[in-house]
Design a protein around this nucleic acid. Structure first.
Lengths: 148, 148
DNA sequence: TATTGTTATACTCTATAACTATA
DNA sequence: TATAGTTATAGAGTATAACAATA
């Protein structure tokens, strides 16, 4: 067995590093929301797309991809799955037939409504580690850090 | 061109979702620290291992891997690179020859010292989006969220 | 010529399984 | 038998390049 250090040595605790904390916080939340959404047949990433679709008028695949900062080729596979599950439809935009208009189906809207509840619940559970007044601050700080 | 929604519709802004914010904050910080460490020939992940090594007495590969919550097979490749660069050494533990004792070399210690400065700088730049008094709160909240 | 969606492909990251050597 | 390190392999995730249809 190798000896454990009993004294403070050079460098701070690796678990205190911001990069480590952010990475693991993200992983924890993702695991939690994935699990919460799993009964609905979608995961966090799918839910991200659903949010964009529910948030806007029917949009092109590219617009959804750009909103989520993912590649348009990645969007194809993501929508393939959602379409196969009957959650979204794709049809050529009459005004520009290069584009697909992506729309939530009736079932997709129901899935989204249920997903929102499930997601909020998982997010709340994740945020239980800090006080309710802090969660607002936390979200605001994150927004400032991402946008700056 | 598809019409943009002019009214608030169902669901909140996809960019406000905690999962999105956390993911992008992590990506932004990682990109920044990777760039800051690049001149030293290491990246954020390497730096994570270096922190563990600098923080402790010489340790086995497995102990380092477990501290970082990465697989021991992943550790092998990571140390291969650091060893080839002369940053760490591996030698069998005389007390248990199944283990490798991993140690920072002289050069590795210098790399770590320089890396710490570069990392802090990148982290500070990332945190510039919020006030100095908030950074402490932010770090504390993250710790609470990860640990709970 | 440029753009959207698609496909094929490759690359990164990481884990699982199996092997070696040591215990 | 179990453990540490290694290797080979496979899987997830994502991007780049090339192509078809359309503008």
């Amino acid at each position: 067995m190798l000896p454990m250090s009993t004294e403070a040595s050079a460098g701070s605790d690796p678990h205190e590093v911001l990069g480590y904390l952010l990475k693991h916080a993200t992983a924890k939340l993702t695991a939690s929301t994935d699990a919460a959404l799993e009964p609905l047949g979608i995961d966090s990433k799918d839910f991200g797309a659903l949010r964009v679709l529910a948030h806007r008028e029917p949009t092109s695949q590219l617009a959804v991809a750009q909103t989520l900062s993912i590649d348009r080729t990645t969007m194809v596979a993501l929508l393939d799955v959602l379409e196969r599950k009957g959650i979204v439809t794709r049809r050529p935009d009459p005004a520009d037939r290069r584009r697909n208009v992506v729309t939530l189906t009736e079932e997709g809207t129901q899935t989204f409504d249920a997903a929102q509840i499930a997601y909020e619940k998982a997010e709340s559970a994740f945020l239980a580690g800090i006080s309710p007044s802090e969660t607002g601050q936390f979200r605001r700080m994150l927004r400032a850090l991402v946008e700056s």
